[in-house]
Design a protein around this nucleic acid. Structure first.
Lengths: 332, 332
DNA sequence: CGATAGTTCCAAATCGATTTGTGTCAAGCT
DNA sequence: AGCTTGACACAAATCGATTTGGAACTATCG
C-alpha cells in the first residue's frame, strides 16, 4: 500500500537513487550488472515511477488535453480516436474534457489544463472568447484550435471546408434539375451552421438564383426543431423540391416532417445532411450527406501538436483545411 | 512565458511564500490586508498554481480516470457524462482513456493512471485479467468496475441487470403469442452478450420451451455481422416469429436481413434490441429495445468513487445493479 | 611510471508547491 | 504587572523523481 520509491529500489539493488535513475532512464550508462540488479529490484518491489514527481522535475507531463463541447456528440469521440492514435506512439496520454458547451466549464477546463501543465492542447470551443485563449497562449503551452470559428491568430487551426462542400452539394442539386431549394440551419453564430449556410448561398448566387429569405429557416441542430421548422416549407408554391440541412439530425427531422406531409424522399423532395453520423446510413431512405472527417481531423490535430511540442515547427501558425467528402445515398 | 511561481506572487505582495500559500489555500488565517495584497498580486501576475507541484506535496491529484474499451461506442460517452456531472462539483477532473478493447492498451492505461497517481478510477475492461486489476488494487487507488463481467472481489462494481431484463423482454414476446423465438448474440466471453443470452434462456425454460441450438446464433455486435447471421433464420419451419438481439446494432442488421427476405416487422417477425442507442429511434420501424441507462451508471460509479475517495465508505466492496428499462416502440 | 581518457557511481541541488515548527506581537484576563 | 491566548508571519522540511558536478577507480599509452 505504501508506495515504493526509487530510493527503495536503489536500496534493494545496492546502489544510490542516482544510479537507479540512470539505469531506468538510460540517461547515463551503467554497468550491465547494475542494470540487472536494478531491473530485478523493480520487478521484485513492483516499482512504478511517480509521474507527478517526474513531471515536476522534467517539466513535461506527456499529457495532451482535448477540450470538446460535448463528448456525447458522436463527432468528438471520433476526433478523440484520431488524436489518440496519432499521439500515443510518441508516449503521450490523451485527457478528454467535455464542457457541455457551457462558458464556465470551458473556462474551468482551460485553466485547469494550464494548471496541470499538459504539454499540449486541442480545443474546440463554443462560447469562450479570444481573451481566454490568450491566457493559454501566454502560458506557452502549444495548442490547436479545431472548428470553423474565426478568431485571433493565437495558435494552429484545423478546420473543415464546410462552405465549399455545401456549395458543391447545392450545385449538384441544381444540376440535377431541382428548382426550389431550401436551407434549414441554426441560429446565427451558433456552431458551424453559418459557414454551411454561406456555402448554400454561394451556389445559389453562382447559378443566378435569387436568395429567398423564406427558404432559409433557423433551427437548433436537433431532430425535433427541424421537424417543426419544416412545417413552414410544405404547401408553398412553387413547391420546395430540395432541402439542404445544417447537420444530419436536422435532415432526419426534416424527413420526419416530409413523411407526415405525405411527400416522398427523394422523388418529391431531395434532402441532404451534414456530418455523416452513424444514423445517417440507418434511416430510411438512407441520408445523402457530407462526411465531416472527424477521425482525420483528429489525426491532423495530433500531428501538428506533436510537431509543435517537439519544436519541429515554430513560428507562424498553420491553418489546415481538411476537405469533406460527399456521400451519396438515397435521399438525394 | 516563464511561469509565475508562488514565490513571485509572495514577492509582489511583500510577504513570504508561506504566507502567500496560506492566503490562497486558507489553510491558516491571514490578515485582511495581506489577503488583499496576495489576491492583487495573483491577478496582476496572472498566477496559476502549478498542479504538479501541489499534487506532489499533497499526494492528491483531484483527477479521476475513466478507462473504456471504445469511446466511439455511444454507450461510453454517456457514461462519461454521468461520471463527470457527479464528480466535477467535488473538484475532480475526469480523464478518459479509450483502449480499443486491446489488451496492451488496457494494461498501459492501467499502469499509466496508477503512475500518474489519479485519486480514483472507473474501469471497463474487455481483455485484461484479474492480475492486472490486482496491481491497481495494490496501489491503494480506489476503483469501480463497470460491466457485467464476473471477476475477483477487488473493488466496487456497477452493473446492469441484463439477464433479468432480457428475460422479461422474452417473456413478453411469449405472452403475446410468439412461438418460435431466436437469439442473435456474440461470441462467447466477448462483452455483455453472455448474460443477455442467459436471460433469453431463462425465459424460454421458465415457459417450458425447449432450447433449440439452431435458434441461437453468434455474431459480433455489428450490423453487417447480424445481417449475415440472420440469413440462417429465414425459411425455417416452423417459421421464426421473433428475434431477441444482443444489442441494437445487431437488431438493425437483423431487420435489414428480414426486409431483404420480404418479411415485415413486427407483423411477421418481432425484433428486440438492447442499449437504446440514438439510432434505435431513427430506424424504421423504430426499434423496441432495452435502455441500458449509461448516464445513470456513470452517476452511480461517480458517487461510489467519491465516497471511497473521501473515506466515507470503507471495507466490503459494493455490488450495485442499475436496472434497465424496457422501451416499447414499433418493432415488437 | 605518470598522464590521460573512459567508466561507474554518488552527494547534493532542483522542480514548485504545502506544511510544520517557531517566534513575535498585541490583546485579554486576573 | 504577569500570564495566557490568539493572530500573524517566516524559515526550513517535505513530496519523489531527475540532473549536475565531481570523485574514485580502471585501462591505455607513450
Amino acid at each position: 500500500m505504501a508506495r515504493v520509491r526509487i530510493a527503495d529500489v536503489a536500496a534493494a539493488a545496492g546502489v544510490s537513487p542516482t544510479t537507479a535513475s540512470h539505469a531506468l532512464t538510460g540517461r547515463r550508462p551503467v554497468s550491465a550488472a547494475t542494470l540487472a540488479n536494478v531491473r530485478k529490484a523493480v520487478a521484485d518491489l513492483n516499482y512504478r515511477a511517480n509521474a507527478v514527481a517526474r513531471s515536476l522535475r522534467t517539466q513535461r507531463t506527456l499529457a495532451v488535453a482535448l477540450i470538446v463541447p460535448d463528448i456525447t456528440n458522436p463527432f468528438y469521440p471520433m476526433v478523440a480516436r484520431g488524436v489518440q492514435d496519432t499521439i500515443s506512439d510518441a508516449g503521450y496520454q490523451l485527457i478528454i474534457c467535455s464542457t457541455d458547451a457551457d462558458l464556465a466549464r470551458e473556462l474551468r477546463a482551460l485553466r485547469d489544463m494550464v494548471s496541470r501543465a499538459v504539454d499540449g492542447m486541442i480545443v474546440s470551443l463554443f462560447r469562450a472568447s479570444d481573451d481566454d485563449l490568450a491566457d493559454v497562449a501566454a502560458s506557452g503551452i502549444p495548442f490547436v484550435m479545431l472548428g470553423p470559428m474565426e478568431g485571433p491568430n493565437l495558435g494552429d487551426r484545423v478546420m473543415g471546408d464546410d462552405r465549399v462542400s455545401v456549395s458543391e452539394a447545392t450545385r449538384k442539386l441544381l444540376n440535377s434539375g431541382r428548382k426550389c431549394i431550401a436551407f434549414v440551419g441554426a441560429a446565427q453564430g451558433v456552431g458551424p451552421g453559418d459557414s454551411r449556410l454561406a456555402g448554400y448561398e454561394d451556389a445559389m448566387l453562382a447559378a443566378g438564383v435569387a436568395l429567398d429569405p423564406n427558404l432559409i429557416l433557423r433551427s437548433d441542430y436537433s431532430r425535433a426543431g427541424a421537424r417543426a421548422a419544416t412545417a413552414q416549407l410544405v404547401g408553398r408554391e412553387p413547391p420546395v423540391d430540395a432541402i439542404i440541412c445544417a447537420n444530419d439530425l436536422t435532415a432526419i427531422g426534416v424527413m420526419d416532417a416530409l413523411k407526415i406531409a405525405g411527400l416522398s424522399v427523394p422523388s418529391d423532395v431531395a434532402v441532404i445532411g451534414f456530418d455523416d453520423i452513424e444514423s445517417a446510413a440507418l434511416v430510411s431512405p438512407a441520408l445523402t450527406t457530407v462526411d465531416n472527417r472527424a477521425y482525420d481531423k483528429g489525426v491532423v490535430c495530433g500531428r501538428i501538436l506533436l510537431q509543435r511540442m517537439s519544436g519541429e515547427i515554430t513560428g507562424a501558425f498553420r491553418h489546415i483545411v481538411v476537405p469533406s467528402h460527399f456521400v451519396v445515398r438515397e435521399s438525394a
